[in-house]
Design a protein around this nucleic acid. Structure first.
Lengths: 154, 154
DNA sequence: TTTCTCGCACTATTTGAAGTTACATGAAAC
DNA sequence: GTTTCATGTAACTTCAAATAGTGCGAGAAA
């Protein structure tokens, strides 16, 4: 089963934006993410509606982060992209008449719900500021002159 | 993201087999699962290799459960079908050069690993015998004459 | 008024699971 | 032994969902 990488992608984009002071265009972000500008606009669209980022048209326009990084958790981002399902598995039939299947579904659902709850709680614990700090730590570890290092792909 | 229903499907098949004393053919099971016999053979193939079910060719052949239901957990079944990924989300790039992405991956991985561990532990707690008991309880709840009830689909 | 940028509807492509066919293998019935 | 029933497995074919891409409209700055 193929895994959804949207959450990973959005977080990545947000941190790149955070490193930039000026607005970044969809095209710049697309280059960093090795994808298409429209894809960037799509995933950032949800975040704009949630008030986490701001977009501006025309010359000098682009995307900026609208809140302090300490005020955005991974959970917020997850919610903003539409709460895609976290579990890769589901039930064969959602409302089965077969009692055997009902028993199976009940057992699986219990486990999945527990795991989802744990995951969401963990997401709520991590802010973008923490991720940015981790990034800076990695930067410092890689080189003693981080300002001359390239953190954009390629 | 579409969810994998193989685990749900296999458990369903196994419980139907358990209700039957005699071997069940792929065709019978396929009818109960509303699918194709070859699909049944495919999903049961892994369980056969794991020693959980036995298959016999020719007249009177078919599939039987090879162990006591108390000795098979959902975790065993999960392992037998090849441990498909449990989480619907993954990282955009597995071994990124981008330090931003490394920081994101690290944070997500931690959460996902915790959730997976919890899920697997829960799977290990549930035996097929428990699922069968739950099924019988549902059967009793639906009707006072369970032996005349049809538990097969349709 | 030209250029740059996002917004959005629409189309195209890719991908992976599920379904299907075909045929070989083995076991019991007759 | 030959027929029938059943699994084993390797293709091949759909089919649906996710993603990528195109085209054009709208708004803002140069």
């Amino acid at each position: 089963m193929k895994r959804d990488s949207r959450l990973s992608g959005v977080l990545h984009v947000l941190l790149h934006m955070a490193e930039h002071r000026a607005p970044m265009t969809s095209e710049q972000l697309a280059k960093a993410m090795q994808t298409h500008p429209v894809v960037i606009r799509r995933i950032l669209g949800g975040l704009r509606d949630g008030g986490f980022v701001h977009s501006e048209k025309g010359h000098g326009g682009g995307w900026t982060i609208a809140r302090d990084l300490t005020a955005i958790t991974m959970r917020d981002v997850y919610d903003a992209i539409g709460r895609p399902s976290l579990m890769a598995m589901g039930n064969r039939t959602e409302a089965p008449g077969c009692l055997v299947e009902q028993a199976v579904n009940a057992a699986l659902d219990t486990s999945f719900q527990e795991a989802e709850a744990l995951l969401l709680a963990r997401f709520g614990d991590v802010t973008l500021a923490q991720l940015a700090a981790d990034f800076h730590a990695r930067m410092a570890a890689r080189s003693l002159s981080p300002t001359t290092q390239e953190h954009i792909h390629g």
